[in-house]
Design a protein around this nucleic acid. Structure first.
Length: 853
RNA sequence: GCGGGUGUGGCGGAACUGGUAGACGCGCCAGACUCAAAAUCUGGUUUCCGCAAGGAAGUGCCGGUUCGAUUCCGGCCACCCGCACCA
């Protein structure tokens, strides 16, 4: 009898798996495959609890599918480019590469201590030239296939990180990492044509039936498809028309003004001769998108004096305003204003004294008395005051008016998207160099494929302002590949989401000379189960879907969707602590008092705040390494699985960890000090299994069936509960019952297989203690015997008028009249029926009998 | 503002297509073992009334459908998330 030695045991099995190469896999078309992937980490220094949860979930799936007989690919790598490395370099005077590799080494050691079933041979780090050279090639292929362009445009500029951000990286007008208000700048940037796939990225969401609805909805909203019309309005005294986009062409007869964006070319042209307009435009730009108060910002306009002709009403003229609420980036940057049916337009019309004509009347209202007050009418109804559209419904009117415009040659039906192209240029050092050369003679020249990779220079000075590559004395100076004259390298690097958009494919053939081998990708992809945080719902997950399509177009791949199944995990939360002085305290700074409160190291009062996401700023973090070295990886893993469903936030508590730890030891004792000796038990089931042994055997099979279903459906907390129930039930086994010793052994073996995906070290130790030479990790998942799952008898509830009054024992599938008689015979039930007449008896077989009196 | 989600004991959470609400765990209470403590084991634990058998109430609030509602429908409330001048 030995106490369960976590450290030694866990290390032992990790070594055994490594030595036996248990998790190394090869593509094998004769086997059904399963690709499990967790979002790879940024090597920030040490793993945190979020990582532990993510990789515990993934490892469970990988081990479970492996036991089910799948050829499982389960790789791990490092999303290794990124800004923190540069910041660390400046602070600590280390090279970003050295800092990154050191972190990778630390985190890899920590991950290995968790006993995760990775094929470590497939590890990749995206900052390695053997990785990023392939995405430089991809970029050249994208160029060739017209999926990339360079454009001078207004960009989101992060003043802290000194770089451009994509639209997806601006949260509430602030940089997603720095939190600094984003400024507008005009820069020449490289863009990937994600909008070319907008329609497909949207419609294919319906096929992703193993993705959370929430994520699909977020992507749908982000892509933001709208149907409307593109119209051209003639401007008095000018030859060029004003082009607008509208989703409400049916309200054209209610138009009373035109509005163009402050960044519209027409506005710029007019401002050249009008200082007051120029001043107005400058004011609009200052407000920009960085103003948090956009919502409350007043609608402001500047009357240009220009007049547009109404496209149908010959004598109507619409004044053209420059307005602060019109965005240049959406549609054409110009609109017609219909105050009656758009709140913004109404506010604007009231401010500038413009006419308000209702053109849609609610069904139940008299058109003659329908007026618009302070609230625009945006609901359904019939068209009024609109000539040939009068009496039509909104949708009919849209079709009719678009047909009219198409005939007149002044407009057409148009679909618009909110999604914009993905700007990938970043003014940073620690990223993949964009492989182009700028030549004064030849213009932008792609780096010839045979000159790849364009390597990052190792000697770099990160201390100054701006882009370090641009300031490097020699790196950017090269000869033009076309004309041979002196030219300059592009000094921008890729957005780091570029690397994570295809890493899942690289894992299929991580050592290939090309990005990935087609055969390997065809076998392994798509990823069957992808697991990670919800925060990537529209960033990484949308980029990867786009990339897969772009790569397909360039002949790399044969599929559209990279991730067939997606599971998003909740955050890890912890209570927060504050000292009397209002300073945040870490969980290790406080200790509990007898009264249930906490005090700090000096005994000072501590106020306990609500549980929040673990974060450095609130100091409510618990370091996984300490937990793992004290309680072991299996305890940490069990706790991660047992307390909350994966998609929900998980509260980290010491008590919960203690509980998991107790269960680890309890399971171990079940085998180490079994109820009776198991040494001589045969392998085949005895013919006689009776009494408590028969009960436990049935229960074992029922548990197998239930746990299998729970694991398939990601109900891991329920699976844990069922296994606990089974191990509790072992206590009820009587040695004297026939077959007891065989059933006990069979039950313990089953438990060891069932907990294998959750607590692999303990499971292996139990398996071995039961006398097996083989590894548990190579054991197949058990089948539940259908005959043993169903009970012969069922407990049926009896209600009187819908209230529970008793229960009766019946044979399974007993006839209805038997159930009825048995229910009516129940003593307590009879008391409630008393002398009342039974009006109706409802019998739901095997479940309930309801007597209505 | 628009879109979506959540709300169940002291706590985390169970309850498949409407059918015994509270599985399992944490915490707490009692008991066993111990000189004692820890660990472990056993039992109890939604609230109220009752010695008990049993009864009443109960899944955010109000109402509806139904023999029967945590589950379906309508209307509120609270909290959380996403988007946000998108024409």
């Amino acid at each position: 009898m030995a106490r369960y030695n976590v450290k030694e045991t866990e290390r032992k099995w990790q070594r055994v798996w490594e030595k036996r190469r248990s998790f190394e896999v090869e593509a094998d078309p004769s086997k059904k495959k399963y690709y499990v992937l967790e979002m790879f980490p940024y090597p920030s220094g040490r793993i945190h609890m979020g990582h532990v949860r993510n990789y515990t979930l993934g490892d469970l799936v990988a081990r479970f599918r492996r036991a089910q007989g799948f050829n499982v690919l389960h790789p791990m790598g490092w999303d290794a480019f990124g800004l923190p490395a540069e910041n660390a370099a400046i602070e600590n005077k280390v090279h970003p590469a050295a800092w990154t590799h050191e972190n990778i080494a630390t985190m890899k050691r920590q991950l290995k201590s968790m006993g995760l079933s990775y094929d470590w041979r497939r590890e990749v780090a995206t900052c390695d030239p053997s990785y990023y050279r392939h995405e430089q090639k991809m970029f050249l292929d994208f160029l060739e296939h017209d999926l990339v362009y360079r454009k001078e445009s207004w960009v989101n500029w992060d003043p802290i990180e000194n770089t451009v951000l994509a639209n997806e990286q601006v949260i509430d007008g602030k940089g997603w990492r720095s939190g600094a208000p984003v400024e507008k700048r005009k820069l020449a940037q490289w863009f990937l044509k994600i909008t070319a796939f907008a329609d497909e990225l949207l419609s294919a969401l319906a096929s992703l039936d193993r993705w959370p609805d929430r994520v699909r909805l977020m992507q749908e909203n982000w892509i933001g498809r709208s149907e409307g019309a593109h119209l051209r309005f003639a401007i008095d005294g000018r030859d060029d028309p004003l082009e607008i986009y509208t989703t409400r062409p049916d309200t054209i007869f209610g138009a009373s003004f035109m509005a163009i964006s402050a960044n519209h070319p027409l506005a710029a042209e007019l401002a050249a001769g009008n200082p007051r307009l120029a001043e107005f435009i400058a004011t609009c730009n200052r407000m920009g998108t960085s103003e948090a108060a956009i919502e409350t910002a007043e609608k402001l306009g500047f009357d240009t004096g220009l007049k547009c002709r109404h496209p149908i009403l010959a004598d109507v003229r619409l004044p053209v305003y420059v307005a602060n609420f019109v965005l240049m980036e959406y549609g054409t940057g110009a609109i017609f204003g219909c105050p009656g049916h758009d709140q913004r337009d109404l506010d604007f019309a009231h401010k500038y004294g413009l006419p308000v004509t209702p053109v849609v009347c609610p069904e139940d209202t008299d058109p003659g008395s329908f007026e618009i007050g302070d609230v625009a009418y945006t609901g359904d109804g019939r068209i009024i005051n609109s000539d040939f559209l009068n009496g039509l419904g909104i949708e009919e009117a849209k079709s009719a008016i678009i047909a009219h415009f198409e005939k007149a040659g002044v407009g057409s039906r148009q679909v618009n998207f909110r999604l914009r192209d993905w700007g990938v240029s970043r003014q940073r050092y620690w990223g993949c160099p964009i492989p182009v050369i700028h030549c004064d003679v030849c213009g932008v020249v792609p780096v010839p494929a045979e000159q790849l990779p364009v390597l990052l220079p190792e000697d770099v000075d990160l201390s100054g302002a701006g882009n370090p590559l641009d300031r490097h004395p020699t790196w950017k100076h090269v000869d033009c590949p076309t004309c041979g004259k002196a030219a300059r390298r592009e000094t921008d690097t890729f957005d780091t989401f570029f690397e994570s958009s295809w890493y899942f494919a690289r894992f299929c053939s991580p050592d290939a000379d090309i990005a990935f081998e087609r055969a390997a990708a065809d076998y392994w992809l798509p990823v069957d189960q992808y697991i990670g945080g919800i925060e990537h719902a529209v960033l990484h997950l949308l980029y990867s879907r786009f990339f897969t399509r772009a790569l397909k177009q360039c002949g790399y791949l044969g599929m559209d969707e990279p991730f067939a199944g997606l599971q998003t995990q909740g955050m890890i939360c912890h209570e927060t602590y504050k000292s009397a002085a209002g300073k945040w305290l870490t969980p290790t700074d406080v200790r509990p008092t007898d009264g249930g409160g906490f005090v700090d190291a000096n005994g000072g009062a501590v106020s306990v705040g609500r549980s929040e996401k673990m974060s450095k700023s609130k100091k409510n973090v618990v370091d996984p390494e300490g937990i793992i070295s004290t309680y072991g990886a299996d305890t940490a893993r069990l706790f991660m699985l047992s307390d909350s469903p994966p998609e929900r936030d998980l509260d980290w508590t010491d008590a919960g960890v203690e509980g998991a730890w107790r269960y680890v030891n309890r399971l171990w004792r079940l085998v180490d000090e079994p109820a009776f000796a198991l040494a001589g038990v045969g392998a085949t089931r005895p013919t006689a299994v009776e009494g408590s042994a028969a009960d436990l055997e049935r229960r074992t099979h029922r548990t197998v069936a239930a746990v299998t279903e729970d694991l398939e459906r990601f109900h891991f907390n329920k699976a844990v509960a069922r296994i606990r129930e089974l191990s509790n039930a072992v206590e009820g086994l009587k040695a004297s019952d026939a077959g007891a010793d065989w059933v006990l052994r069979n039950c313990l073996e089953t438990i060891s297989v069932l907990v294998g995906p959750m607590m692999p070290h303990l499971a292996e130790e139990i398996w071995s203690a039961l006398g097996h030479e083989s590894l548990l990790v190579d054991q197949p998942w058990p089948d539940a015997d259908a005959a043993l799952i169903v009970d012969e008898n069922v407990t049926v509830a009896v209600q009187v008028n819908g209230k529970l009054r008793g229960t009766i024992e019946l044979a399974k599938d007993a006839p209805e009249d038997v159930a009825r008689e048995s229910a009516l015979a129940n003593e307590n039930v009879r008391a409630f029926i008393a002398d009342k007449a039974v009006r109706k008896v409802i019998v739901v077989p095997n479940r309930i009998v309801n007597i209505v009196v």
